[in-house]
């Protein structure tokens, strides 16, 4: 499918192929009916056909195309689209090797929260929220000491699954990453897991995809997908900066 940004995640290909198939179906229908449309307009214009025939079209062509459309839609939905979607929404907590990150949207930035070396997220408390601690992370607690918090920046290792625990502090945002074919609303009060595997290194944009106020248009984030070593180095540097 032209115009889509180049795919950069493991499932992007399957989304794109459904996209191509639907558009093919649409194209066939539009060109088919369009050709017929132009033909009848020319053939049955009043100057050429002075008296209409009230019988009109006969035969089963119409019914056949309608049934054809239904079959095509069923095939598209059941064979192609639903499996992709189920794959997207399946619970995958069991995946051991995955990078787990919390992402919390707020007007108008993305808080990206890594659990740090211990692999456990520190506790967050409403009372601790401040301009320097947007998540209200309890740095005093043992699990919170080593947590890494970034603003609108995210580092990910290539070819390793990521699970993002997505939520929001204030209004509804939407975590959209066009290149990864990922989009998920970030609802306040609800944590929604988002799962994908980046397959291409480089910088990719996070675009907030839900109207969230006057700064919606600039609620942009960047995901840097890098090699496993570079990712380790990044974590180590951040951990050093904390000390």
């Amino acid at each position: 499918m032209p115009w889509l940004p180049p795919p950069a995640s493991s499932h992007a290909g399957s989304v794109d192929s459904v996209m191509t198939l639907v558009h093919l179906l649409m194209l066939v229908l539009f060109v088919g009916w369009g050709t017929y449309f132009v033909f009848v307009l020319a053939r049955f214009r009043a100057s050429r056909n002075t008296r209409a025939n009230p019988e009109g079209a006969r035969g089963r062509v119409a019914l056949a195309t309608e049934i054809g459309v239904v079959i095509a839609e069923v095939v598209l939905l059941v064979i192609f689209a639903l499996p992709v979607w189920f794959d997207r929404t399946a619970a995958r907590s069991s995946d051991a090797g995955a990078v787990v990150i919390r992402v919390v949207g707020e007007q108008f930035a993305w808080n990206v929260h890594y659990p740090g070396a211990d692999g456990r997220f520190g506790e967050t408390k409403l009372a601790l929220v401040s301009p320097t601690n947007p998540l209200g992370l309890d740095r005093g607690s043992p699990s919170g000491k080593d947590d890494i918090v970034l603003l609108s920046l995210m580092h990910l290792p290539v070819n390793r699954p990521v699970v993002i625990q997505l939520s929001s502090k204030d209004v509804i945002h939407s975590f959209g990453v066009p290149a990864m074919r990922v989009k998920q609303d970030a609802n306040p009060g609800i944590v929604t897991p988002v799962w994908f595997t980046p397959t291409v290194t480089g910088d990719f944009e996070i675009a907030c995809s839900q109207l969230c106020g006057l700064g919606h248009y600039r609620m942009r984030g960047v995901i840097t997908v890098e090699s496993e070593e570079a990712f380790r180095r990044f974590l180590a540097e951040e951990a050093a900066a904390l000390r």
Partner: peptide
């Protein structure tokens, strides 16, 4: 139609 299929709605929504 592509909006009505959740899989293709991912990149197209909003």
């Amino acid at each position: 139609l592509p909006l009505g299929l959740a899989a293709t709605d991912i990149p197209l929504h909003d």
